[in-house]
Design a protein around this nucleic acid. Structure first.
Lengths: 218, 218, 218, 218
DNA sequence: CTATAACCGAGACGGTACGTCGCGTCTTCGG
DNA sequence: CCGAAGACGCGACGTACCGTCTCGGTTATAG
């Protein structure tokens, strides 16, 4: 687990009147309760049926409290779901192929959670028309999880399975490419094609990917 | 090319009484007008702001006429967008790599259309909670476009770039896998990572994929 | 029973093209079935919930057939209900008071039928904004039932309970007045005050009316 | 006179939580604006064409605000119209007959208002299938206006035109009877027979009624 | 015996209103 | 100043009927 990067994906800042720091401070438990309630609501209702009122009710909080902290349903959901992706890790299984296969299955499992699958596509759909949301997704999910690719490469390089890269620019480009290929293939298989990402599929995919990786660095 | 498969994406059946074929027939122009209006509405408003009322108004049709033909916004949008995917084709560029690169760029271009990008993720998000919609997406989009993979393989085999496969079951599995990898990578790059799918990226992706393909059949 | 006055309150005339009398004639059973269905629908659904579609379905007839014969729900209902009022009669009970009491109770009973009570007030409400409907009510219901007042007076005069009137104009005015007083009181008691019109009430009302009648002719 | 009874015709209660008196209070101006708008809409459109949307628009209020306060169009209209009946009064004209004649003409004038005539029959028609509405009409209109009968009798008794009644039960029954006769006759003449309630008719009706009243108490 | 014309059923059509739901804001009271 | 409660204006929902229309098919009279 890597988790503790910034922890605070956070949202709207308190009003802070001209005087600075007066008045009742925001309840801290509320934040956690709201995010938890959001996930519960996603599980039960799904993205499109989730409502701010329902989340507020589950969290035992007034609707106004939600709006004081998040500007919209989209941002709230990104924050609520992003943390789930931090649970992904890359245990060392001894070979590049085994590592890839492991993370693919782990990612597939994460995408099977009802809150994840419905929320991820939902916010991505919204982000096509919302620049700010696109940035939020990138920073809260995409960029955070590229660590897995980096880590995998480092291990493979340490094992001698992959060469060290000279050009840091090329390395970055490859990181992005591999991330899109892995994440994209799993997401597409699981959510668009709607077929199971099982051990068999993971194995075949890994073969394809790993044998392709060699030619990237040449 | 435009795949002359029967256009039977179709929707609610008229409620033909048991006796057979009575009553005023459904207007055929209306269908086309509605689908066109749906795409126009997607362009202008995007998935989440699209309303049945707006589509009806654009099509010059009563709201009830929409509901008579499609059970929900989701199904309507799938039908409206699916046809756009049929425009994809695989022109023969002389080599497997060139063919892949061509179709990747073509697909990327399709995903840049505002109606496509907003609608695709939108309906996929909904489909996570709707079995019927999942089937509709699969049959109207996913299965139809796998023809591109099949066609590419045949050409490569004819050119001697790829071996002929003995086991039809394995061949089918590979088709699915390749489709998910290609479509998934492009969609993820374009919509989740929100980075441009340009010639450079297409080239690198193609290198990765094509060199991986060899090891699949062994 | 007096019934057979004109019987035909009737409605829209057939199209009768320029040639005159050709083409398929209107089904005669349909008319009766529709009026019966209208009453059934009134019983079950009441005035405001009655729909043309429901009536048509009950009558086993297409909606178009209804509209070919009646211009509106209002006219249809007047025709359907008017005939019920023709069932009122004035049996000779030996005295003016007894006759009045009898007809009051009979009228009250008629107003207890669900089809009558809901329809009568409904069409009257509509008639406040519809001159033609007002006329139709007057001719199909009001004027037809004034026969009861005339008959009652004749009997009373024959018995010597009431004097013969010299001025036919005054006689007509009195007929109208008495009709409005009797019908109005019963309707108001039953439908507005929503109290039962029982024997006790009928008796008291009759005392009031009959003792007042004497002074009219002086 | 305008009967200063408590204006408690009132409608849906705010959904005060168990704790008591929290949340934003209902706008008080809205109530008046809505009732006024209802009357305006009745004048212009009549009972059957009146819509909740139109009333809301006229009142400058959202449709939901109407539904928060009144359960249905029927109840709203009763409340809107009931207050008009409170304008009836019984000026002392020196004799029972003159008083009756006066109130009959006054009532007739009230029934000539387009909002009154269309609404009264409309709600009564609905009330035939709605116990609650029946009660509301009784308490908001019928029972409130019986004050006129009581007042008229008291004056007549003070003048010696009518005897004092011994049995309070009989007195109550007579009150009801007289109210139904007067109101019923006027309503029937004006709305069912659709003939003018003019001075001449009022005079003849008064003769009939007053001479009948004597025999009631004997 | 065949036109021709009006009828009939079925059901789709463009509309209008419905009553409900969720949004995001606001207004109150109390901490 | 925060927080709960809940009313507010708004706008979309999906449904129900309206009265009209367009079909294919039926049943009369007129030629």
């Amino acid at each position: 687990m890597v988790a503790s990067m910034s922890s605070s994906t956070h949202h709207k800042t308190p009003r802070s009147g001209p005087t600075g720091r007066t008045g009742r401070p925001r309840s801290v438990e509320a934040d956690a309760a709201i995010l938890e309630a959001t996930r519960a609501s996603l599980v039960e209702l799904g993205w499109s049926k989730l409502t701010m009122g329902d989340v507020a009710a589950r969290a035992g909080v007034a609707k106004t409290t939600l709006y004081r902290r998040w500007a919209s349903k989209n941002e709230l959901v990104v924050d609520a779901v992003a943390v789930l992706f931090d649970a992904l890790e890359l245990p060392d299984r001894g070979s590049l192929a085994a590592d890839v296969e492991g993370v693919v299955l782990q990612f597939a499992e994460l995408l099977q959670l009802p809150e994840t699958k419905t929320a991820l596509m939902g916010v991505v759909a919204e982000s096509t028309r919302d620049e700010a949301l696109r940035d939020r997704i990138r920073s809260a999910i995409v960029d955070r999880q590229k660590r897995l690719v980096l880590q995998g490469r480092e291990r493979a390089q340490a094992r001698g399975e992959l060469p060290y890269e000279d050009d840091p620019d090329t390395a970055a480009r490859n990181t992005d490419l591999i991330f899109d290929v892995v994440a994209g293939a799993v997401v597409h298989r699981a959510l668009v094609s709607a077929e199971p990402v099982d051990a068999e599929w993971a194995r075949r995919f890994t073969v394809l990917l790993v044998s392709g990786l060699g030619s990237l660095s040449t």
